[in-house]
Write a protein that binds this DNA or RNA. Structure first.
Lengths: 340, 340
DNA sequence: CTTGATTGCGTTACCGTTCACGCCTCGCAA
DNA sequence: TTGCGAGGCGTGAACGGTAACGCAATCAAG
């Protein structure tokens, strides 16, 4: 007569039977709800522990119409850039607040489908890493329709969504101004792909800041953010035969590639050419010469994205705004002071 | 009388009502099952599309007792090592086969809890990245009890679980033998943390191979796989004043740090000291000098892990074995040939 | 003309939670 | 005594799918 639970996971009704109460009372006990006698709660919790009970999340999801899962979508990221995002930080931050995180990589035309899919999985909120995406009105609309808060993990000036990203104009200004301050007047550029919002803004800032100082902008070539593309872009720049004493690279990867190309062509860094990168990657301090760069902590950014997203989920009237972080100049030895 | 579906997601019963059939027929149509008239199926699919229907995954999970979700657990990874794992590859591979992937980072004592938790979320399978874990018998047992296949994303010789990893002894042999072939007789080492199974095996291989050749192993210091620790380990080695002409580093990160330290102390690479790394990180070809290293493609490894895991899930009688991948020596310019 | 298999579809139960109610009891104030 | 609020708990439905089974109609074979 003993309905042995062999192989099967125990349910709240199994606990209820053993405790001599209804399944609802068990539910109350397990969820720390009020209106239950302290001893009853204790007894139920003990039985639950003894049975090795763990609630079935699917049932919980179905009943509560939510999943406590966040989803991160990487949209059309260059392989070299992918997972500058720190999945670990996001997972940890989310876990502390009771959520799990899922990651997916998609193409721009799949964003809508991804939101639909997330809705069908009762995903509570979504982070979007889409550095090429300019017009996100439709996405904001769909997210709103499905009641899924969305936070962008980059900075797009015209975004209708919540954003967390670094001040791009300020970062680019830091880089170029530093070179100007050190007396450079011929400043070349290896930009990121200009479809990237950030790359385009940096390019424009580079150009404008030089022109505002009465200086003709040096040659500029676009890379794809990979080390290799930086190497090749530099070969291209050298072919132009337009002289330059300094280079702004779109990220540290390309700066490294460019330095390699310069060294292979007998140019010394920083004596012949000064170089500034972006991001302050881990290796930046250890290459030869140690790289002067604009630090943008992705860890910090990803932590804030996660916290903000959860805030939006749990507090419906949290306002949507653009959270702008400040990058900082890290001076090492890849820039020569021409004033000295 | 029209029960308008405003705001609510349509269900199969809504579709059924519109199509004039039962919800079961709709289910059959949506799941491509047999025993349904072609026109009925078409009509139902059209209505589903028009309604923007997407199945509720929670309901599906509850009913099917599974989730089509894989979980990847990173166990106690040094920050520097974390996400050498390529989440993108795993996600993509899984997606092609109808699964999603979740990532989490945990400590060793949380592994059991993580499996329990995965079971309660009806997770179909788990990948474990636990390079420090030697005895995994208990974990294998718990996984088996909860009917969750587990694949380790590293190579542990005594593992009871399915494993996918690179041949550590062979990799270390490649590195040391290469140095011996080039005439080196004083070979130092910067190892990874010796609690790491792989680090310990490499260390032993380094030692044994040298002794087998009648050579006294050079000095050895352990780092933590970060660039910085490589730098500091080299300072330590230099302090010992034991001369060496070659260095084996536990990974490219530490090789880079070590090179930096050597250069700062006026040693030229490879003229004074030759260096071999491990992994063939993206930047390895671009630092100065380009680094000779042992290539281990994590992308390939992660793809295989994912495919193997799904195979284990879908085919209950798939056998459990250790899948050993072969690393390869990539020769660049950081090793000097003393025979020439 | 019966038999039996097959096709096409419906009915009902079930998965394991939470939620909306409602019922009893007890204590306390009117 | 009555009324009433609150504490403690139970009952039944709901969530949205899938699974098991049943049943009528059709059709080919005997």
């Amino acid at each position: 007569m003993t309905t042995s639970l062999q192989g099967k996971r125990p349910t709240i009704r199994d606990i209820a039977k053993l405790a001599g109460v209804s399944h609802q009372t068990v539910s109350r006990a397990l969820n720390n709800q009020a209106r239950i006698a302290p001893e009853t709660r204790k007894r139920i919790l003990r039985i639950a522990r003894d049975l090795g009970y763990h609630p079935n999340r699917a049932a919980k999801m179905l009943s509560m119409k939510r999943s406590f899962v966040l989803e991160v979508n990487l949209v059309n990221i260059e392989p070299a850039t992918a997972f500058s995002l720190s999945a670990k930080i996001m997972s940890d931050t989310a876990k502390d607040l009771g959520y799990s995180v899922m990651f997916a990589e998609i193409t721009p035309d799949e964003i809508n489908k991804a939101i639909e899919s997330a809705a069908s999985r009762l995903v509570d909120g979504m982070a979007l890493y889409a550095p090429r995406l300019n017009d996100d009105r439709e996405i904001a609309e769909i997210g709103h329709r499905h009641n899924i808060p969305i936070v962008r993990r980059d900075y797009a000036p015209d975004s209708k969504l919540a954003c967390v990203g670094y001040d791009i104009v300020y970062g680019a200004t830091l880089a170029v101004q530093h070179l100007l301050d050190q007396g450079h007047r011929h400043v070349a550029e290896i930009s990121g792909p200009l479809e990237y919002t950030a790359a385009a803004i940096r390019h424009n800032t580079w150009q404008k800041l030089l022109e505002d100082n009465g200086i003709e902008p040096g040659p500029s070539v676009a890379g794809d953010y990979s080390i290799k593309s930086g190497y090749e872009a530099m070969l291209e720049l050298l072919k132009h035969k337009i002289p330059f004493t300094a280079l702004v690279a779109g990220n540290d990867h390309m700066a490294l590639g460019a330095i390699r190309a310069l060294q292979e062509h007998g140019r010394s860094i920083p004596d012949d050419v000064s170089v500034v990168g972006f991001d302050d990657k881990q290796y930046a301090a250890y290459i030869d010469p140690p790289l002067t760069t604009i630090r943008q902590s992705f860890d910090r950014q990803d932590k804030i994205v996660t916290e903000y997203l959860i805030e939006l989920i749990e507090n419906t009237d949290t306002e949507i705004y653009h959270r702008v972080l400040q990058p900082e100049l890290v001076v090492r030895n890849s820039v020569r002071n021409l004033n000295a």
